[in-house]
Every structure is written in structure tokens, then in C-alpha cells.
């Protein structure tokens, strides 16, 4: 399925309280196993769009959507879809890392325990495996039972990555995942994402144009709730077609 569509968005509209429209008729095809970057000025709806991919938008009071989001061809808003299955399929890296009130080990094991019984050796191996993928194993292998909150914020974000990967998602969603991190930690996370795109479809909302250029294979530019331009990153960055994209890329807003 290389280069195929993984997430397809059809006629998607999103509203917050008092019918305030956050997404206006969005149609997109997000490619399989590439990094897609969503850019745009604050309030353009990029985070809202991301939240529709794991049905997090419905956690906001008064939010509602119309339209469809298809993952692997199936509408995740279908009434008989199990929301926990959808979220298991889509790992999330939030703007800042939130550690669950438990040890480093338990944070990574959390999702595995949630989805059924894995015990002893098997669980130990899984935890080690995903901490390695997240590039954190060597730093924490001697203190797996310390509270996760004792880690630095950059390390915490990698715990989040390991925690998300442990439930074997197909898609990784990043909501400005490096905006709270120092430059070195941010570079570390970016390097992880570049490694991971071989196996995962990655969608990253980003505020920084430079990060978008470093990471993006496919780029989406949004403005005031609308998708202005979407396409292979090279084209969007080097030959933007739309006036507003050109303006954004040249730093006008």
C-alpha cells in the first residue's frame, strides 16, 4: 500500500460551542507511511483537524462534526465503530508530555495492560522494546520503577512516544509535539519521527515552518478553518500555488 491513502477526509466540518465553525468543508487524502505536516497560523483549525483523526474532538463540550474521516477506508465516525479501537490505532503526542501517575515502566505498559493481560517477561520485553524505539532505554533502564514525573520534559515526551507505540498503532499524531521542549530534545523527537515513518503514518501539526520543511513529505496548509493547499511537501514549499500559502511561507502571517 506504499504511497496509498491512509486517512481520507471527506466534506468535514467541525463546530465548537455556539456553532462557531472551526473546520470548513475539508477534503484531504493523507498518504500511507509518510510524514504529513499540517501548518497554518494560530486558530486556523490545524489542531482541531488532528483531533478528528482519533475522535478527541468529542471530548470538548459542545463540539460536533459533520462529514467523514476514513482510516483504511472505514469511517471512524460510523455509529458502530468502537472509539477505543480507533484511539488504539492512532498514537498521540500532545503539545506537552503528560505522565500518568505511575512509574516509567507502568507508563509504557499502561496501554498494554488496558488492552488485555500481558504479564511478566512478555511485558518486560515489550516495555524495553518500545523504550528503545523511543530512544530512551539507555537513559532509564536502571530506574524503570521511578515515578515518570521525575524525568526531564524531553525524556517525558519520549515516554509518551513509547507509551503510544506500545499499543501498536498504525498512525502517529503529533500536536506540536516539540513546542514545549528544548532544542536538543526537540531534535531528538524529530529524529525519532523520521525513523518511524517507515512503519507508521505520521501526521504532525506544527507551528514552525522550518520543522515542517525538515519533517514533511506531504504538506497541508490551512487558513481560517479551510485547507488552502495540500500536496507533496516539495511542491507546496517550493512552488506554492495559492496566494495565501505564498504569504504564509514568506512570513507575512
Amino acid at each position: 500500500m506504499m504511497n496509498d491513502t491512509h486517512i481520507e477526509i471527506r466534506n468535514l466540518n467541525a463546530y465548537y460551542e455556539r456553532n462557531q465553525q472551526a473546520l470548513i468543508n475539508v477534503n484531504l487524502k493523507i498518504p500511507h507511511r509518510q510524514i504529513t505536516v499540517i501548518m497554518g497560523p494560530s486558530g486556523c483549525g490545524k489542531t482541531t483537524l488532528l483531533k478528528t483523526f482519533n475522535r478527541f474532538l468529542e471530548l470538548t463540550d459542545g463540539a460536533r462534526i459533520t462529514g467523514e474521516v476514513l482510516i483504511d477506508g472505514e469511517n471512524i465516525y460510523d455509529p458502530d465503530k468502537d472509539v477505543t479501537e480507533i484511539r488504539k490505532k492512532t498514537g498521540l503526542l500532545a503539545q506537552r508530555p503528560y505522565m500518568l501517575p505511575m512509574s516509567i515502566y507502568e507508563n509504557v505498559a499502561y496501554g498494554l495492560r488496558i488492552h488485555g493481560a500481558k504479564h511478566g517477561k512478555e511485558l518486560d520485553q515489550a516495555v524495553q522494546h518500545y523504550l528503545e524505539i523511543a530512544g530512551l532505554w539507555d537513559e532509564v533502564k536502571d530506574r524503570l520503577n521511578s515515578p515518570a514525573t521525575s524525568l526531564s520534559i524531553g525524556q517525558q515526551q519520549r515516554v509518551c512516544l513509547a507509551r503510544g507505540l506500545a499499543v501498536e498503532p498504525e498512525i502517529l499524531l503529533g500536536d506540536e509535539p516539540t513546542s514545549a521542549l528544548d532544542p536538543i530534545s526537540a531534535a531528538n523527537i524529530e529524529a525519532r519521527l523520521l525513523d518511524l515513518k517507515e512503519d507508521y503514518t505520521i501526521v504532525v501539526v506544527t507551528h514552525t515552518l522550518r520543522q515542517a520543511k525538515r519533517l514533511g513529505d506531504y504538506a497541508i496548509f490551512m487558513y481560517l478553518g479551510e485547507v488552502v493547499e495540500a500536496g507533496p511537501a516539495k511542491e507546496v514549499f517550493e512552488h506554492p500555488k495559492e496566494e495565501r500559502t505564498i504569504g504564509y511561507l514568506s512570513g507575512q502571517f
Binding site: 478527541f56 471530548l59 477505543t84 500532545a94 503528560y98 505511575m102 496501554g111 488496558i114 503510544g164
Partner: peptide, 25 residues
């Protein structure tokens, strides 16, 4: 913080699991 709940929900936990395993502890 909401982010704690989201961290749990994001890996596919139900609300009840989130309450039992994260919020109550």
C-alpha cells in the same frame, strides 16, 4: 489536568478505565 485524561484515552482506555487506573490513584 485534562492532558492526563487524554494521555490515558489516547491509548484506547475507556473512561471507566481512566477513572479506575489514573484518576482515583
Amino acid at each position: 489536568p485534562e492532558g492526563i485524561r487524554h494521555a490515558s484515552l489516547a491509548v484506547g482506555a475507556t473512561r471507566l478505565q481512566t477513572i479506575q487506573r489514573v484518576l482515583i490513584p
